[in-house]
Design a binder for these strands. Structure first.
Lengths: 184, 184
DNA sequence: GATCCTCGTTCGTCAAGACGAACGAGCGGA
DNA sequence: TCCGCTCGTTCGTCTTGACGAACGAGGATC
């Protein structure tokens, strides 16, 4: 989590989003039901808005709340199979390629998994609130909570909490898949 | 985006997170650098905290900001290949299965894609701030911004902005993949 | 050039958030 | 039992956010 007070970030986000939508300061204030003087001060970073105020602005702009405190980043990027920038292999028979780590606030990571039958990958609980999504691309795997794993095959999808002990093992050679690790 | 004022949600989140970490109200207030009276009022939903106050609490709890306003939901769920709950097919040769729509605040959707060669799927721009992540499970596809598509094969990963015109077409029969649509 | 409109900023007022102090409750040890 | 500690709440104050009004600036129309 970002440690710096997000006032300047909020100020920039508000102005950026408002101009993107093409609203004037006065009109946005009217839509959000706040005084335009308040909005003016917020956009000049001379203010510490209350949650309700910022929420109203988020609704008026039709923008998720978090987008106002965590700035975005648009881009087009390709990662070819096997050339992931951050290869995170743990033990034999297990390779996780980090495809997309969350740029600003680290809210989710996207991995490509390649597994071979053998030792299961047992994971200790991650940070509370973590959720893992698994989709099998090829082969079969046994995954999910350690005390209640599920067998899934090609095209199957599995969600399970990441903040409890969980496991993931291949049941066939050449098993691959993608995993979305989400920090709710 | 949720339309209701999140004061009760914040109150519940604060109490939940604080008890999860095992901190007393007094100690959390001290760590966050705010008065415990303030925290007490916030947890009883009789308050409208400023962003700085809530931010300080998020930092002290080591919890993402958004987790305080959007409550979580832990669960284990399997969706077998082809039995997705919400099949969203648009035209022949294109099937998108919604695997996981974001429960509370709709910040991302996870789809399984099955495409056959033929007409490309042209998408008008989605909501501003949308980002699409694509991983190919089988076959080959041509995807990305309409004016600059990229050819990707098995295991390849592609990110591109979803708020501009973009396309997605199969180059081989039996092309499948997963798509993470994210609303930043 | 004069009028009218909307833009965004600044000023003074008022309500509300943040604060410290004090309070009663609950618990453990002397 | 009494003392000392921490718990979470409530009260009075003081700061500060939110508001409406007024302001100057910039265009458009006549």
């Amino acid at each position: 989590m970002n440690r710096t007070a997000p006032l300047e970030v909020i100020a920039a986000s508000l102005r950026r989003e408002r101009e993107r939508v093409g609203l004037s300061l006065s009109e946005l204030a009217k839509r959000a039901g706040i005084a335009k003087s308040t909005l003016s001060q917020l956009e000049s970073a001379s203010g510490n808005p209350s949650v309700e105020t910022l929420w109203a602005l988020g609704v008026a702009l039709d923008v998720p709340f978090s987008r106002l405190v965590d700035p975005p980043a648009a881009r087009v990027q390709v990662i070819r199979a096997g050339e992931g920038p951050a290869i995170y292999s743990e033990r034999a028979h297990y390779t996780a390629t980090l495809l997309a780590s969350c740029p600003p606030g680290a809210r989710r990571d996207l991995f490509h998994l390649a597994l071979e039958p053998g030792a299961a990958r047992e994971s200790d609980p991650h940070m509370a609130g973590t959720v893992e999504h698994l989709v099998v691309s090829s082969g079969r795997m046994l995954a999910g909570p350690t005390d209640n794993p599920v067998e899934i095959g090609v095209g199957d999808y599995l969600v399970y909490p990441g903040d409890i002990a969980h496991t993931c093992r291949a049941l066939e050679p050449g098993t691959t898949g993608i995993m979305l690790m989400e920090h709710v």
